[in-house]
């Protein structure tokens, strides 16, 4: 079982290394990830939200619904922990 999982892990690593050769170079300023949407956020953060920290602006203003969903996930996880571990009242007899 251990040898089988080792083989599966190495196969996955080889496939990912083969895929990583098509990635843009590390630290390339003109990679597609850093030229498409994020320059808009960097340029308009001050005039839209008056906040110098761009991460805060994107987190709370541009993508506020995302943060709302994250809060929902954390709330659901807390409720699940409470329901799983809370003292259960035994209701027997009927």
């Amino acid at each position: 079982m251990k040898i089988l999982s080792l083989i599966a892990g190495v196969l996955m690593g080889a496939a990912l290394i083969y895929g990583s050769l098509d990635m843009p170079k590390w630290g390339d300023p003109h990679s597609p990830a850093s030229t498409h949407v994020s320059p808009y956020y960097l340029q308009h953060s001050i005039e839209h939200a008056a906040t110098p920290n761009v991460v805060t602006t994107v987190l709370a203003d541009y993508r506020g619904y995302d943060t709302l969903g994250e809060t929902t996930v954390v709330f659901t996880a807390g409720m699940a922990c409470l329901l799983l571990l809370g003292k259960r009242r035994k209701r027997q007899g009927k």
Binding site: A33, S38, Q43, V55, V58, L59, T67, A77, C81
Partner: peptide, 29 residues
């Protein structure tokens, strides 16, 4: 004017901020 090449890309930082919190929620459950 703001030179975009001077600052790191903020968008993956925001998404991964969310992912870290979700990771800890998964860990708790």
């Amino acid at each position: 004017a703001i030179n975009v090449m001077q600052y790191a890309n903020p968008l993956p930082h925001v998404l991964m901020l969310t992912a870290i919190v979700v990771m800890v929620a998964t860990l708790g459950v």
